[in-house]
Design a protein around this nucleic acid. Structure first.
Length: 599
DNA sequence: ATGGGTCCT
DNA sequence: AGGACCC
């Protein structure tokens, strides 16, 4: 691949962000489908944290006060969602679904309801399942699947018959759009959930473009990404340019505020409940074209804010659609576990003790659920550890720690002196103290109940005294206990191929989960006619680029283009010596595996 | 706001 | 230990 294209694509082919539609509400609807047709809101304390689309149709919004919601929609059904257990469990199932369909464990979690999935078009085109070469799907690569931005192709890349030529970027994104569509339908067939997907070449662009068609749809950011020779601006610039700067992932409240202040020449008006006033919106386009703007100016704007050293360069990159961050490899366990609750007022040590005990119990249960596995390697599900599918004998299993937190942290937030503070986001108000995690919490022989009491008295109460040395005078509105500084335990392989392959084999057997009959992918057989389909879909790519008459099957070589960057090479496709099918460059490896496994 | 998470200084 | 960012 040439340098320009490599930089254009970030060397990364394509990826998709997955955003599960009104996730908390969907979890309740999955439990009780009758809720689907009703306006449903999920409550945490005083606010609606999310609501379903029926509720949105009636004017409800995320982060609305419960009072407001009830006033606007008196017949709203409200579910309490302060305990995140069921959401976390559903999140794990959905993560597992995408992981099974992604090579190299390249699925990154961005929250309970958001995932980032790196497409591996070399492998997934023909063979979606790492160990089953018969699993794949058919599609027509002459089109993008689903909505795109912009909706129609730009005039400069209009398909004009014989001259039709797709860049490698174009091919990657087309395939990505079909793969995403296929997986979205698999998701809907096999789980009660729906997702909205964005397809592009970077996290930044995939995330933003995914917001365009919600719910239950997907959007692909169309090429060309950069300005073309005939002076047309690329789609990246036109798409990004319209966004308010605060909407760009990576530019948060503080940085957006500094940028707006610089551009407007004054402090923006921050409305208490509405946030930013319309006239104080500052778009990416305006920032980018502001006199003197660039990485150096941005460094100056952010000076003294405690941001990382290269922040100006990084933000300038984001404003120009440059995001080089890789899709992380999925982790086997979280790097931090925390439990918190908020209160109207906790102001004496006995109340603190009363609150600490349930929090500590929950923390220990979570540590067992998320940081341990049994000897055979199967992750244990709380409450089901001794009930095996298909047998009724309680099985005594030996557990072991996969990851081990070395630090315990206690954080509190004090209630501000009742001043209706406008700039409430400007100070977080949290303070914390940490200490080494006592070894006894890792015991498997004592009950969680006993361990929790001992941990509170021996460790957390002393931490609290360090945090609040005054006997009274504190008015806590939040207490948080966290297990942090996670260390991988000996014998556990946190990430990487070994662990991934292990997980694949384990997935062959029955799993004690909600979607235990969920296949890795559909059972579409790869047949001769299937190959033909694929070939016709890609014929245009081949036509424009190489001499199609060179089909010299006898000298077929699989060895080149391992990286799939064969754009300028002489063999973007070839004919298989065994079955005679035309194989595009990105599918060669998978196709050879197909034959090597075939009997 | 809520109840979580991530990484950097 | 705290601060920024994310959902």
């Amino acid at each position: 691949m040439n340098a320009e294209l490599t930089s254009l694509m970030g060397g990364s082919q394509s990826m998709s962000t997955w955003d599960y539609d009104c996730f908390y509400a969907s979890v309740f609807e999955a439990e009780n489908p009758a809720l689907k047709s009703l306006p449903l809101a999920v409550q945490q304390k005083q606010i609606v944290v999310t609501c379903n689309y029926e509720a949105r149709r009636r004017g409800l919004r995320k982060l609305q006060l419960i009072k407001e919601a009830k006033r606007i929609c008196p017949d709203v059904v409200i579910m309490l969602g302060e305990d995140l257990t069921k959401f976390r469990d559903a999140s794990k199932e959905l993560h597992a679904f995408l992981k099974k369909n992604t090579w190299g464990n390249r699925v990154e979690k961005l929250g309970f309801d958001e995932l980032l999935n790196r497409h591996d078009l070399q492998n997934s085109f023909f063979q979606l399942d790492k160990f089953d070469p018969t699993v794949g799907f058919a599609f027509d690569a002459s089109t993008f699947c689903g909505p795109t931005y912009p909706a129609e192709p730009c005039p400069s890349v209009k398909e004009d018959g014989e001259q039709l030529w797709f860049s490698s970027l174009d091919v990657g994104l087309r395939l990505g759009s079909h793969l995403a569509n296929y997986l979205r339908h698999q998701l809907e067939q096999h789980t009660p959930y729906t997702a909205t997907v964005g397809i592009s070449t970077s996290k930044l662009l995939a995330k933003l473009v995914g917001n365009l068609n919600k719910p239950r749809l997907q959007t692909t950011l169309r090429p060309p990404y950069s300005a073309t020779d005939d002076g047309q601006g690329g789609n990246v610039a036109s798409f990004l340019g319209q966004h308010e700067i605060g909407k760009i992932p990576g530019i948060g409240f503080k940085m957006a505020h500094r940028i707006r202040t610089h551009i407007l020449g004054r402090e923006p008006n921050l409305d208490v409940y509405e946030g930013l006033a319309e006239e104080d919106n500052v778009s990416v386009d305006v920032v980018r074209s502001f006199p003197g703007m660039g990485p150096v100016k941005l460094d100056e704007i952010f000076r003294g804010g405690g941001w990382p050293k290269d922040i100006g360069t990084k933000v300038w990159g984001l404003l120009n659609g440059v995001d080089d961050t890789e899709v992380a490899v999925g982790k086997a366990f979280p790097s931090q576990i925390s439990i918190e609750d908020s209160y109207s007022q906790v102001d004496n040590l006995q109340s603190v003790r009363n609150e600490l005990l349930p929090l500590t119990r929950k923390l220990l249960r979570r540590m067992h659920a998320d940081l341990t596995e049994d000897e055979e390697g199967e992750e244990l599900t709380t409450g089901h550890a001794t009930v095996q599918a298909g047998r009724h004998l309680p099985v005594k299993r030996k557990k072991r720690w996969l990851g081990c937190p070395r630090t315990l942290r206690l954080s509190t937030r004090s209630r501000p002196p009742s001043l209706p503070d406008v700039g409430h986001q400007l100070h977080s108000n949290r303070i914390s103290k940490s200490c080494p995690m006592p070894r006894f919490v890792f015991s498997f022989s004592e009950t969680v109940e006993a361990l929790a009491e001992r941990l509170v008295e021996d460790t957390i109460v002393p931490l609290f005294r360090r945090l609040h040395p005054d006997k009274s005078g504190y008015k806590l509105s939040l207490i948080n206990i966290a297990a942090t500084n996670m260390m991988e335990c000996a014998g556990s392989e946190n990430s990487g191929v070994g662990q991934d392959i292990g997980a694949m084999f384990r997935n062959q057997g029955p799993r004690p989960t909600q979607f235990s009959n969920l296949p890795a992918v559909c059972s579409h057989r790869v047949t001769e006619s299937h190959f033909d389909n694929q070939h016709h879909g890609l014929k245009h790519v081949v036509d424009g680029e190489v001499d199609q008459t060179r089909g010299d099957a006898a000298v077929l070589e699989w060895t080149s283009d391992e990286d799939g960057e064969s754009e300028n090479s002489a063999t973007p496709h070839d004919e298989c010596t065994i079955c005679g099918a035309f194989i595009p460059w990105f599918a060669v490896q998978a196709h050879s595996i197909y034959h090597s496994v075939q009997t």
